[in-house]
Amino acid sequence: MKVESAIKEKRPAIKQKHSIAQSLRQEWQLYLILVIPLCFVILFKYAPLTGLVLAFKDYKIARGFWGSDWVGFEVFREILAKPDFARAFRNTIMLNVLDLVFSFTMPIILALLLNEIKSIKFKRVNQTLLYLPHFLSWVIIGAIAYQLLGEGSGVVNNVFEAFGGNRVPFLQEDTHWLFSYLFIGVWHSMGWGTILYLAAISGINPELYEAAVVDGAGRLRKMWNITIPSIRFTIITLLIMNLGKVMEGSFERIFSLQNKATTEFTTTIPVLVYRWGIESGNFSRATALGLFQTVIGLAMVLMADRVAKKLGEDGIF
């Protein structure tokens, strides 16, 4: 921190010499290029936000977007009274917090381990194998999971049985399902999650490691005292961003892995949004739930950012 503040102090103050009009005149080509992504963001990220008004309307298809009646917070009151809502709220938070514990930490550990591999070839092969699951869709993963872990005819259970063991309901009993869900999530995302950490690690000054070796530090000591502190900013940034997703969760992941014998944890907010919005065509209710989810997510991000700053970190805003 001292070094960073020293750098900041030494940085000369740059005066605003040009007005915006002058900048536009001189660098109009750059601004023109900027217009493209700006239009994209406005059209596809901001314009759809106007659809949020549906959360405050009794939306009827025939009356349209603006013709439907305003109902204030009635839709929100309706949602809160639904028995499924409390369950979905609990499950969404629980699954995401557990995911944060396992799926967020595993890539850090994995990146540290990959960084220790000396053979470049071996390291690359491993990285590629670890990245692969990320490119499989959840529908495929769901089908593979049932082929492998199914209680009735799953390959893993067949092997267990062949060796005299009992068949395990990996996906067909609530608690087992929860662990399988988390495990499959970790397997799916850990490889891809290492990319940012490995990039951050590659930016660490090798002299720091050399100095540590001279001081007699072993591998674990170097990891603990050099690597982890050096990627701390990346970890915190990603943690804050992940906290924003604590009310989201992957609809596809639940949908592909669920079955009707294990429903205790499978009703989540994205599942309800799909059920109410897509399956039953109650767009107002689905929008209200989506808005609720987003507002909580935003609050979590802002809160985490504040906490990070209070602890002396940079935060993301």
Binding site: I42, L43, Y46, A47, T50, F65, W66
Partner: peptide, 18 residues
């Protein structure tokens, strides 16, 4: 500002289709 512009864009497009 972005929100207002985008609202207008959407509103216009809705009006057009109507």
């Amino acid at each position: 500002g972005f929100l207002m512009v985008s609202s207008m864009l959407t509103a216009c497009s809705n009006n057009n289709s109507k």
